[in-house]
């Protein structure tokens, strides 16, 4: 009898609990904590825009510096550097992540194409994170190195000393490649081809083009002279025109070839250098707490 009563009572209690759970359950998936958990899941899937939306909803009810950092970091990953920098700014004061936020704020300026602002901030030292100062000094040197010419490079010893032992050899190699790029002078190439057709092409290491240009220009000139001597005016002028065309074309082509040669050197260097820096995340820190 008692058991039967207990059973009935239990049914009533649990149905009531169930009903209240049901009323609450409508918002369960959208509860503050679940928003954060779902946001973390999306963030780790690199679905940053959706993650940011979830985090923004979460922050309406809770305060969490890691979540704020992740929002700013997500914008950064999406290439939305202005929003990223603005969001990092909100963590500058009274936050355990203030140093990291300052670093990321400055790198957002750097990678967002606002290098002047980056250098201004670095010089003013207002938001300089002490902990990450060496990283930022290295970044500023990298920027200077990237935009400088072979004659205006920073001191090699200082430049290489900024990197850890494993990177020193590679950076010294890049420095040497930039210092001695082995460019060809377009004017020299043009003058060489003017003096002897094809020589400019040989200078720019286009050997087969150089030999072909020499033979064709010589042949056309010979035929033009020979036809003038034989009084075949039409063909004589035709070959004269062709000889002049090949001669002028070769001078222009040699100068262009030197420029292409130089562009190739620049492209290969920039490509290799950029690949190496990206591979090493520009020697900036990676954060374990972002996605565990």
């Amino acid at each position: 009898m008692i058991n039967s009563r207990l059973l009935k009572l239990s049914v009533i209690v649990f149905v009531l609990i169930g009903s209240s759970t049901s009323a609450q359950s409508e918002s369960d998936l959208y509860s503050t904590e679940n928003r954060r958990l779902f946001g973390d899941y999306l963030f780790c899937q690199q679905d940053y825009l959706r993650a940011i939306r979830e985090y923004q909803e979460y922050l309406k009810f809770e305060s969490n510096d890691t979540v704020r950092f992740k929002i700013a970091y997500g914008f950064n990953r999406m290439g939305r550097y202005i929003e990223s920098a603005d969001n990092f700014k909100s963590l500058f004061f009274a936050s355990a992540l203030a140093e990291e936020a300052k670093l990321e704020f400055l790198t957002s300026l750097y990678f967002g194409g606002r290098k002047n602002e980056f250098f201004d901030q670095l010089a003013r030292k207002t938001y300089l994170p002490k902990k990450y100062e060496p990283h930022l000094v290295r970044l500023s040197y990298l920027s200077e190195f990237e935009k400088s010419f072979s004659y205006s490079l920073p001191d090699s010893a200082i430049f290489v000393s900024l990197f850890n032992d494993s990177a020193k050899v590679k950076m010294a190699e890049f420095y040497s490649r930039k210092k001695h790029p082995g460019y060809k002078n377009p004017t020299t190439a043009a003058l060489l081809s003017a003096a002897l057709p094809g020589l400019g092409k040989i200078y720019t290491e286009e050997y087969s083009d150089g030999i072909t240009a020499f033979l064709l220009t010589g042949l056309m000139t010979f035929l033009a002279v020979d036809n003038f001597k034989a009084d075949h005016d039409l063909r004589a002028w035709l070959f004269t025109g062709l000889a002049a065309y090949f001669y002028a074309g070769n001078i222009y082509g040699s100068a262009a070839s030197a420029q292409i040669y130089n562009a190739g050197i620049r492209f290969n260097f920039e490509n290799d250098f950029s690949f190496y820096l990206n591979q090493n995340n520009y020697f900036l820190p990676q954060y374990d707490f972002l996605c565990r």
Partner: peptide
């Protein structure tokens, strides 16, 4: 009885 409503909802 305890688990049924939770699972159901």
């Amino acid at each position: 009885i305890l688990l049924f409503p939770v699972l159901l909802f």
